[in-house]
Amino acid sequence: MSHAIARLPEPRLRALEDAYGAAVAAKRRQVLLGGLVLAALVGLSAWAGEVDLAKFFANLWRFPSYIGDIVPTLRLTHLGEDLAEWYWGLGYWLRLMGETLLIAYLGTMLGGLCAISLCFLAAANLSRSARVRWLVRRVLEFCRTVPEIVFALIFVAAFGLGPVPGVLAIAIHTTGALGKLFSEVVENIDMKPVEGVSATGATWLETVRFAVLPQVLSNFASYGLLRFEINVRGAAVMGFVGAGGIGQDLIESIRKFYYSDVSAILLIIIATVMVIDLATERLRHALIGMESRS
């Protein structure tokens, strides 16, 4: 006994094939249209962005040669002396890197405190006045949309050169970024403890303290650490506009072609950023573990 695959009658088969063909053709047309739009955008941006591929390929050799220039000459026979010459300013640079970390820390803490005090007003489930909520959300949006370098430029004009404008610029940007994340965390809490505490006649502040804060604190800390990591990178370039930290020295050595200094400072920054990344990741995992246990 053999099985034969039943074939549909010819006209029905053709109808199905036509429908399949039409569906495929429609999809192809869509992809083609998307591709054309993309190509047009690329052409337009290439024109606006002054893309010059000829110049790019003619000068591309300068990129590896620049990298080659900033790599210091290290000879095995005089390794100690060469290293000492490369990192001639180690103490000074480390102090500047410490200042950079301090700028990032103060900015994160200051911004985080502002964000904590504002996030409950921006959360849809806790804020009682829609108008206050709208206002707080717009303020947070403004704080995180304006780049921190722009704030730093304005603050340098107002507060003078140095780390003070850098800290304030990072704090404002952090307020905006963390305020949004924090208010989203607050919106996702379990409302039963809130109802329980407010049923005992607690005020709004007491409700936040005893019903909301215990639920959100570990998330807050985790987001804060993540932001600290981002702010360390941000603080490293604050010096470009005169707002303190190691960036000032970096931009000077790039502009003045102190090649080996460029690589020395860059390595310090990259190493610090990596260490901070690893440390905050560890801490965040510990925090998340704490949350799932309780």
Binding site: D52, F56, F63, Y66, A236, F240, L250
Partner: peptide, 16 residues
Amino acid sequence: GVDVLIWALIWINVVG
């Protein structure tokens, strides 16, 4: 790990 502003400074050396 290298910020976009630093990359910009490096590329300026290449393409102006």
